[in-house]
Amino acid sequence: MSKSVFYIKFVHSLLFFLIAICTVYVFIAALLDHINWVTWLAFGVAITELLALAFNEWRCPLTDLAERKGAEVGSVADLFLPRFLSDHLFTIFGIVFSVTCLLLIWRVIQ
């Protein structure tokens, strides 16, 4: 793996963990009915990632960048995570984020 690909994967991993932490934070804040400006900031981070993926045909722009720098197809997606987890991230976080959004909406309208 080239240095460029390594750095892209490293940044990709940091962003993944930031987005994961934000998603879990919003879920817990909504679950405990403790919604404040930090909750909305974290939700905005998650929505920004969702929009970035949606506008790039559900493919992370960093994956494209890594492939242009010589990474194998999809190799940036492993994020230095176990293969099983990286293969199912969209499914796992899709479900978690959907439940989080429903819970957040329920808390806001109640």
Score class of each variant (00 low, 15 high):
residue 40 W to L: 04
residue 99 V to C: 09
residue 41 L to T: 10
residue 43 F to D: 02
residue 94 G to Q: 07
residue 1 M to I: 01
residue 45 V to I: 14
residue 86 S to P: 06
residue 75 S to H: 15
residue 33 D to C: 04
residue 28 I to D: 04
residue 91 T to H: 11
residue 4 S to Q: 13
residue 69 K to R: 15
residue 48 T to P: 01
residue 82 P to C: 07
residue 59 R to G: 05
residue 110 Q to W: 11
residue 20 A to P: 04
residue 96 V to F: 11
residue 99 V to A: 15
residue 24 V to P: 02
residue 72 E to T: 03
residue 108 V to N: 08
residue 58 W to G: 01
residue 83 R to M: 06
residue 99 V to F: 13
residue 24 V to R: 03
residue 105 I to P: 00
residue 46 A to P: 03
residue 4 S to L: 10
residue 108 V to H: 12
residue 18 L to Y: 09
residue 45 V to L: 12
residue 7 Y to S: 05
residue 40 W to D: 02
residue 9 K to W: 07
residue 67 E to I: 01
residue 84 F to A: 12
residue 99 V to Y: 09
residue 15 L to V: 05
residue 85 L to D: 07
residue 41 L to R: 03
residue 55 F to S: 09
residue 24 V to A: 12
residue 72 E to Q: 12
residue 70 G to L: 06
residue 21 I to C: 12
residue 87 D to L: 15
residue 25 Y to F: 14
residue 40 W to I: 01
residue 88 H to T: 00
residue 89 L to H: 07
residue 49 E to D: 07
residue 21 I to L: 15
residue 103 L to M: 11
residue 52 A to M: 14
residue 8 I to R: 00
residue 77 A to K: 13
residue 42 A to M: 09
residue 78 D to E: 14
residue 102 L to D: 06
residue 106 W to S: 11
residue 101 C to H: 01
residue 30 A to F: 09
residue 79 L to V: 02
residue 105 I to H: 04
residue 77 A to Y: 09
residue 107 R to P: 01
residue 110 Q to S: 12
residue 105 I to L: 14
residue 24 V to M: 10
residue 48 T to K: 10
residue 50 L to V: 00
residue 23 T to I: 08
residue 91 T to E: 12
residue 5 V to M: 03
residue 97 F to R: 05
residue 92 I to M: 12
residue 69 K to E: 14
residue 89 L to Y: 10
residue 52 A to S: 11
residue 16 F to R: 00
residue 84 F to M: 09
residue 64 D to V: 11
residue 5 V to E: 03
residue 20 A to H: 05
residue 74 G to S: 10
residue 101 C to N: 08
residue 102 L to N: 08
residue 76 V to E: 15
residue 22 C to K: 01
residue 37 W to N: 10
residue 93 F to Q: 03
residue 3 K to F: 15
residue 75 S to T: 04
residue 65 L to R: 08
residue 13 S to Q: 13
residue 59 R to P: 01
residue 50 L to E: 05
residue 37 W to R: 11
residue 73 V to L: 15
residue 55 F to V: 09
residue 8 I to Y: 00
residue 96 V to Q: 04
residue 11 V to I: 14
residue 86 S to R: 08
residue 66 A to M: 06
residue 107 R to G: 00
residue 6 F to N: 06
residue 11 V to G: 04
residue 45 V to Q: 02
residue 99 V to S: 07
residue 74 G to T: 03
residue 78 D to R: 11
residue 97 F to I: 05
residue 68 R to I: 00
residue 81 L to T: 02
residue 36 N to H: 14
residue 6 F to T: 05
residue 97 F to C: 06
residue 42 A to F: 08
residue 22 C to R: 01
